[in-house]
Amino acid sequence: MTANNCNPASGRKHLSFIDRYLTLWIFAAMQTFTQIFQRWKPSFKASTAGSPMP
């Protein structure tokens, strides 16, 4: 196979700001909604490993 079908870096389309940092947006959203839920329901425990199901 030849590498003639590859686009050079200068010819590639640049990603938008949101697309470039999508992983950070996802982690920020998860953190934000976790904090909002904990304030809404203070008895919420993020870690319930080892606890029996009610």
Rank of each mutant, 00 (worst) to 15 (best):
L15M: 09
I26A: 13
S10W: 15
S16D: 05
A9Q: 15
Y21P: 01
M30L: 13
I26W: 07
Q38H: 05
F17K: 13
P8G: 15
I26N: 10
L15Y: 05
P54H: 00
I26H: 10
R39W: 08
P54R: 00
A9L: 15
T2E: 05
I26C: 09
S51R: 09
K45N: 04
A29P: 00
P42T: 04
M1F: 02
C6Q: 13
P8Q: 13
M1R: 07
I36Q: 09
L15P: 00
A9S: 13
F37K: 06
T32I: 09
F17M: 13
M1Q: 10
P8M: 12
S43I: 08
A46V: 06
P8D: 15
P52N: 11
A49L: 02
I18D: 05
K41H: 09
F27L: 12
S51M: 11
M30D: 05
N4Y: 00
T2I: 08
W40R: 10
M30W: 04
L22V: 01
M1P: 03
N5T: 09
W25G: 03
H14G: 10
G11F: 13
F33L: 10
A3I: 14
P8L: 15
T23L: 14
T23H: 11
S16I: 01
G11E: 15
S47L: 07
R12T: 13
N7H: 12
G11M: 14
N7F: 09
T32M: 05
N7C: 11
N7K: 14
T34P: 00
T48A: 03
T48M: 02
R39Q: 03
F37V: 11
I18S: 08
T48L: 06
H14L: 15
L15F: 08
H14Y: 10
M30Y: 03
S16R: 06
R39L: 04
